[in-house]
Design a protein around this nucleic acid. Structure first.
Lengths: 236, 236
DNA sequence: CGTTCGCTTGAACTAATTCAAGATAAGTGG
DNA sequence: CCACTTATCTTGAATTAGTTCAAGCGAACG
């Protein structure tokens, strides 16, 4: 068919010409991962590089004593597993589907030889990882300096930007998201998240349900994230 | 002279042959930065890539309200500023010398053309950034899940591994390190750091002074970091 | 030699955690 | 379709880890 090549949307392949795109595509295979299942788990040998084409998945780490931390969510056209391509190593985290997912996959040796044949791919990957790195540094700073409420506000804003769908009463986060999930993203407990969301619901900022969050007033959430206190919160 | 090329020690240049190393070296220049001064500051345009050859410096971010976070320390043979080479961007953080420093420097366009001429450099950089990324993810998880005491223990162990010098009574961290600095690395306050170090000093784990920390018992510090409680701490 | 800077320590305070108990909603199988 | 089971969520009460404020000490510095 003559429609645009879907690979053009993927940051990782931007800058490749048509012929190269075809080669890259031929070397790929499709992997389907159903809701709740893992693409890979922490400490497994890193064998595969993925570009997600449909669904949502989350990146998480577990501590020795079983505590989980969610480092972020991945949506369509996002890629993961570059570590597989550049060194014999283990995945430093797990990738778990939170809805049914479809992904394009490349084995480590395949990607490695693609990078050798198309040096621009290494530069692309470098730009990609650097961007994520800068983002993680910012998240780190937020975790180190900000109160729980602000961190929760930031996470909801980030998720709504990344996976938000218009909804009659606001923007709905388009995958099941529990209080526990939000806690693991913000370094707090599910109790504190529940209390915070209850309070926001009373103020009309969000609507919540079981594994569901709809943002009614992004402005107020932004004000909380940026620590701008509205009158109704400062008054006793 | 016939001694080994100093560039061979730098991770970034490993894999380059002698001729390439010479070219890379010729394109570099030396920059000296005295104690307390900045290599660059957050939000400045990223123009330069550095490899530190002598001294110690720290990477830090400041929040809008002036709070500082230290993301890590850099010692000899470590490199920084890859963001300069790959995109027109601002430095996402500041690099400040904590002792007198000497560094090799490359301007962004220079490094960019070097990467085009020697594609292996992009792969090197990718490996480097990925490594740091994995490390930062780990630090993030620690910050999200661990108590202050453990985080402080980890930081001291990390710093002693990176910049520790043998000392009659233990391992000494070889640059001025204030309580405030440790607080900014662990996301806590200088008061809590002071209290923690005082306690450890009573237990004989460390010796401290003004901007000085000597680790006397790395094992006990490791036990704290790994949450293995010795009897004397569990007894009432 | 006074002033600055880094450090210590007590005391009061508070943000957030932990524990406990119950409510609500979603599967599951008879 | 309804009872049974399971998982998510809410909320109060008690607790605590860590912060904040305040005051004072001692070493370094100009």
């Amino acid at each position: 068919m003559t429609s645009t090549n879907p690979f053009q949307h993927v940051r990782f392949f931007q800058g490749l010409d048509g012929a190269a795109l075809t080669v890259v595509q031929q070397k790929s295979y499709v992997r389907r991962v159903s809701d709740e299942s893992f693409f890979f788990q922490q400490d497994e040998p890193a064998t595969t590089f993925y570009v997600l084409t449909a669904g949502q998945a989350h990146l998480s780490q577990v501590t020795i004593d079983g505590q989980q931390v969610i480092l972020g969510f991945l949506g369509p056209d996002q890629e993961v597993g570059i570590v597989a391509a550049i060194q014999h190593a283990e995945y430093p985290l797990s990738l778990q589907a939170v809805t049914d997912c479809v992904a394009l996959a490349w084995d480590a040796p395949t990607l490695q030889s693609l990078m050798e044949n198309y040096p621009i791919l290494a530069l692309r990957a470098l730009r990609m990882v650097t961007g994520r790195f800068v983002q993680l540094q910012q998240q780190y700073r937020e975790l180190a300096t900000e109160r729980v409420e602000r961190r929760i506000a930031r996470v909801l804003l980030r998720l709504s930007a990344q996976a938000g769908q218009p909804h009659p009463t606001g923007v709905r986060i388009e995958f099941p998201l529990s209080r526990q999930d939000v806690a693991e993203m913000t370094g707090t407990t599910l109790y504190t998240v529940s209390r915070t969301l209850s309070q926001w619901e009373k103020l009309g900022i969000v609507t919540t349900g079981r594994e569901l969050i709809i943002i009614r007033s992004p402005q107020e959430l932004l004000a909380i994230a940026d620590n701008i206190l509205p009158d109704k919160l400062t008054d006793p």
